[in-house]
């Protein structure tokens, strides 16, 4: 039951092509790293794979079907800057229940404090906010998780903590995990194979 990108080409407006005839297959249970220097199209690829951008050419399919246009998206994307991925005018309890209602066990695994739920996003640090974003993306309907520089802005300790929990959940649920990072050591540590862009 793979996530499959076939012959993708993409550009913004009339700018030069960012991706040309790019193909990729990620199977369930796999952890795949994507690395490359900044500006080479890593984040654009992530947006295409999760359905936020339509490629001009090529297709993205999950289990042979195109990504759903409505309802919960089984391909979930986590971004580098969590403060830009949450609604600044929603309290955290609304944000975390946006796609599903996580149970207490899930909140505990990521160390989410009960009294943070009533706070506004600007009252939490980046590390705290990113944990909300990760939990939000991990409903039982998720089958692919794309982490686009998920822990780049965080310190090494929080990075290790978040990744330990995420990889454990991915293993338990047999999720496909795509790790986008310029950090070679992190990719080497987490991934079974690496795609250089």
């Amino acid at each position: 039951m793979p996530l499959e990108a076939k012959g993708i080409s993409f550009r913004y407006g009339n700018c030069p092509w960012i991706l040309k005839d790019f193909s990729l297959t990620v199977n369930r249970g796999e952890v795949v790293g994507i690395s490359g220097h900044s500006g080479c199209g890593k984040s654009t690829l992530a947006r295409i794979l999760s359905g936020y951008e339509e490629p001009q050419l090529g297709t993205v399919t999950l289990d042979g079907k195109p990504l759903p246009r409505h309802g919960y998206n089984p391909v979930q994307l986590i971004l580098q800057h969590p403060e830009k991925a949450v609604n600044p005018r929603w309290r955290m309890d609304k944000t975390i229940n946006e796609g599903w209602v996580p149970d207490q066990e899930m909140l505990d695994a990521f160390g989410i404090n009960d009294n943070w739920l009533k706070r506004w996003p600007n009252e939490l640090s980046a590390g705290e906010l990113q944990r909300f974003c990760v939990v939000r993306a991990l409903s039982s309907q998720t089958s692919v998780l794309i982490a686009d520089e998920m822990t780049t802005m965080l310190d090494a300790l929080i990075q290790a903590q978040i990744w330990h929990v995420v990889t454990e959940i991915a293993k338990k649920r047999n999720l496909a995990l795509i790790v986008i990072s310029h950090e070679k050591h992190l990719i080497k540590r987490l991934c079974q194979r690496v795609i250089e862009m």
């Binding site: 590390g127 705290e128 903590q161 330990h164």
Partner: peptide, 13 residues
């Protein structure tokens, strides 16, 4: 906790 070292987290935040 660095990925090039042991990548071991400690509990708590």
């Amino acid at each position: 906790a660095l990925p090039q070292n042991d990548f071991i987290p400690v509990s708590g935040f």
